[in-house]
Nucleic acid binder design. Structure first.
Length: 801
RNA sequence: GCCGGCAUGAUGGAAUGGCAGACGUGGCGGACUCAAAAUCCGCUGGUAGCAAUACCGUGUGGGUUCAAGUCCCACUGCCGGCACCA
């Protein structure tokens, strides 16, 4: 065959058009084929466009999906846009362009970038979370939650970003900084919406036992939910008929309690403020604390502050000893009961506090030196009446729980670190919360048939004053009639947080154009659960837990058929900039996939992002290293020049062909794309040095390379007269033919290599030993053999002296 | 502080307890070329040696084993998550 130039630009355009025209990758909802649902995290269409990190994130399941199709599955591999959110709104404010327009522009840009890479997404199912037909159902789910008491309002201190003028959830304000603009967060009292995710804490934890997530994904979710088992204990108040209830994980140390601490906001202070003689000092302390940000409050770990409550004394239910009560901000109102029993001998925070305030420290567990620091380890119980002599924590806890139960002053209890989900933003670009506030009826849901409650078109989407939503300024939106009684009422003006739309998007993909339901029952039953979900580690706690929560709620409602949405979850590593730092616009180290496609082609980009290292590890971008992938595909193209006839694998290549097919098949399943590509490179090297490849070998090779480099392989496959690759079959391999006829065996004396011998692959142990001894007869001379180890196919090791 | 993860040539990275460094990049040498690029061929962990070869070598120090990058113990350094969670 005469040389034909590898014109990647023309080839890639040609096949992308072919796939579009033939709807090659559209999934069928009514199919007898086995289904495979592969899900990647849909992008937030930001103004800066995609970077190569997105490409890596999607390339993993792209390869798996293309392989599955060749294996005969009906594959759903969808894409969409998670388009509500602050960055778009901030761009809109800055440029004066409406967020709707900004979003549409960005989606056009993202779409063209994605298409140029040749991803096999089902473009007929694209979702945009900001479209009415989509957020209608987001609102529908919210109303179902409201109806079931899972959406509620509460007044609390909220994290408020003075720069974005918006209330943030704890998870969006970690480290005391705003997730979006990185300003310092301040505390503010406000009535806001919550979703009662804590009600699902245990279900979310238990569900993890039924799914196939990466171990560290599971672990992070477990830590996030933060289940702790311990005990609730009621301490009597000496002065009044009142109980002070505490939560502890160490009820075994109850005899070591020397003081108690309650949170500054604890209600008992308000209840008895007349009876407390130093109430002014307490008020002053409380005010001081409220000025601190959450960040400051958790930073000053060493330097404990607090005030003793005068006129309030607690009584230890076991020892009947009187103990002082303090307020301190190291105890949080939001966890447990907002009150603790302090055991300075065995808790480092209590220890610091006791040292500062000169409180007694009583040792109840031997093993440490409490004159130096708190001892938190195990040991023999002392100074503890009935517990004395017990030597391990578990037995001591069991014993004390029995005693507490008998006395009726305490019981076993469970606590979760996870808090309810602050479900609100005071911004324009989000789903309107479909609730009406009626002076007579209270909070009333917008009737389902009136959904979607449309986001009103406005010119001015600047945030309102004091963290009010821009919607609050629009009288025609705010003023409405109560759906229940018909009287004048006001609309809720908060919008939903960014996480809302992504909490159920995988369901909409199953049936994206349904107008009667978020998806039909049949579609859900066919497609769900997601078979394989891949995304970033950064979404493992927030997005994944939120969406699992929504899904479990819908399951309890009976409208979805699986209790877990995702059967399997993996995560790709970041692509770092060429400087080894995280890619970001501000660092200026972002690589645009379009530049790479222009220069090298989509196939080279795809192969490189998967070849650059372990898929799950972070790896720096290295353009010169990408040249290797370019050379690889050039050499693949050049195979056409050395093509020979042949209906089956040639004897010279048979074993290597089978081995490579096996390796690539297996590595794809384990996301070890780098070694799969390396194996194909090694095959090419072998073929090139052999100087020929026959048609059978070519056909198989193009098939296994196809998921990685679909354009070049489809072009070659088609032009060589094999047909259309996407309608072909994945290669099978014969395990028996993966073994070489002869293998090299290492011959060792005392673990040191003395020789290498080639032996028939089926040689038995005795034969191997005989050949090995023969090979190192000289070295063995005059020595006594102590031990002989024979590992067929690997080595022979003789220990002698 | 707590919980994870990682540590291998100049470099990105391979190695079911069994030949460390597959595959790629870079480097060196050669072929082709007036020359360069591209392409092709060979070499490329360190030390000693003309050489065959020998010794050393997977963050550090111990251990288990015929055999350790891999398993166990202790430590150091980076990365990630959680964090006054009682």
């Amino acid at each position: 065959m005469e040389d034909k130039k590898y014109d990647f630009a023309a080839i890639e355009q040609k096949w992308q058009k072919y796939w579009d025209d033939h709807k090659t990758f559209e999934a069928k909802n009514n199919s007898d084929k086995e289904k495979f649902y592969a899900l990647v995290e849909f992008p937030y269409p930001s103004g800066s466009g995609m970077h190569v990190g997105h490409i890596k994130a999607y390339s993993g399941l792209e390869v798996v999906s293309r392989k599955r199709r060749l294996q005969g599955y009906n594959v759903l591999f969808p894409i969409g846009f998670d388009a509500y959110g602050l960055p778009t709104e901030n761009t809109a404010i800055k440029t004066g362009v409406h967020p709707r327009q900004v979003t549409d522009n960005n989606i056009v840009k993202f779409t063209s970038q994605l298409k140029r890479v040749g991803f096999s997404f089902d473009w007929s199912r694209v979702i945009d979370t900001t479209e009415e037909e989509y957020y209608k159902w987001t609102q529908w789910i919210f109303l179902k939650m409201f109806e079931n008491g899972l959406a509620f309002r509460d007044t609390t201190l909220v994290n408020y970003c003075p720069s974005c003028k918006v209330v943030l959830s704890n998870e969006d304000s970690q480290g005391g900084k705003c997730d979006v603009c990185h300003s310092d967060i301040v505390q503010k009292t406000k009535e806001v919406w919550y979703l009662r995710i804590t009600e699902y804490a245990d279900k979310l934890l238990q569900g993890l036992e039924t799914v196939d997530y990466l171990p560290n994904v599971k672990l992070q979710q477990e830590n996030w939910i933060g289940k702790s088992t311990g005990a609730f204990v009621n301490f009597t108040i000496k002065e009044f008929d009142e109980k002070l209830r505490i939560y502890t994980t160490r009820p075994d140390t109850l005899y070591g309690v020397t003081f108690m601490v309650i949170a500054p906001e604890h209600p008992i202070i308000e209840k008895y403020r007349d009876k407390i003689s130093n109430i002014e000092a307490l008020d002053a302390y409380k005010t001081e604390c409220s000025k601190k940000s959450e960040f400051e409050r958790t930073q000053l770990v060493k330097d404990k502050t607090g005030v003793k409550i005068e006129g309030l004394t607690a009584i230890n239910p076991l020892t009947k000893k009187e103990i002082p009560v303090y307020i301190s901000d190291y105890v949080m109102m939001g966890y447990g009961t907002g009150a603790i029993m302090a055991v300075p001998a065995h808790d480092s925070r209590d220890y610091d506090f006791a040292k500062k305030f000169g409180i007694d420290i009583i040792e109840v567990i031997k093993g440490g030196d409490i004159s130096k620091e708190a001892y938190t380890g195990d040991g023999e119980m002392v100074n503890s009446d009935v517990l004395n002599g017990i030597t391990n924590k578990k037995d001591a806890i069991e014993k004390v729980l029995t005693v507490l139960a008998e006395m009726g002053v305490g019981e076993k209890g469970v606590q979760y670190k996870m808090k309810d989900w602050a479900f609100n933003r005071q911004r324009y670009w989000g789903e309107p919360i479909p609730i009406v506030h009626c002076p007579d009826c209270g909070m009333v849901a917008v009737p389902y048939e009136e959904l979607p409650l449309r986001l009103p078109p406005v010119d001015n989407f600047q945030p309102g004053q004091d963290g009010e939503s821009p919607l609050a300024k629009i009288d025609s939106y705010v003023n409405c009639k109560c759906p229940k009684c018909g009287k004048d009422a006001k609309r809720e003006t908060d919008t939903m947080p960014q996480w809302a739309g992504s909490s159920w998007y995988f369901l909409r993909y199953c049936d994206p154009n349904n107008t009667e339901a978020f998806a039909s029952k049949e579609a859900l039953e066919y497609w769900m659960p997601v078979d394989w979900y891949n995304g970033g580690m950064e979404h493992v706690t927030r997005h994944m837990i939120y969406s699992r929560f929504w899904h479990k709620f819908l399951y309890d409602l009976g409208v979805v058929n699986t209790s877990e949405p995702y059967a399997k979850r993996t995560a790709q590593g970041l692509i770092l900039g060429p400087d080894g730092e995280k890619m970001s616009k501000s660092r200026g180290n972002v690589v645009d996939p379009n530049d790479i496609v222009d220069l090298y082609g989509a196939d080279v980009l795809r192969v490189y992002v998967l070849f650059m290292g372990d898929y799950e590890q972070a790896a720096p971008w290295n353009e010169s290293s990408m040249k290797g992938c370019k050379r690889f595909l050039d050499r693949v193209w050049a195979l056409q020049n050395i093509l020979t006839d042949g209906d089956e694998f040639s004897p010279e290549l048979q074993t290597l062909m089978h081995k490579t097919i096996k390796k690539v098949s297996e590595d794809i399943e384990q996301m070890k794309f780098n070694t799969a590509i390396a194996a194909m490179m090694a095959l090419i090297n072998e073929i090139t040095s052999l100087g020929r490849i026959n048609r059978a070998e070519m056909k198989a090779f193009l098939t296994i390379l196809n998921p990685f480099a679909p354009h070049i392989t489809e072009e070659m496959y088609n032009s060589l007269g094999f047909g259309i690759l996407n309608e072909s079959q994945w290669c099978s391999y014969d395990e028996a033919l993966c073994v070489d006829a002869t293998v090299e065996i290492v011959v060792q004396l005392c673990g040191k290599i003395k020789a290498r011998i080639n032996v028939p692959a089926n040689a038995d142990k005795d034969e191997l030993l005989r050949l090995a001894k023969e090979a190192m007869a000289q070295a063995l001379e005059g020595k006594t053999i102590r031990k002989e180890i024979v590992v067929p196919g690997k080595l022979v090791n003789i220990v002698a002296n």
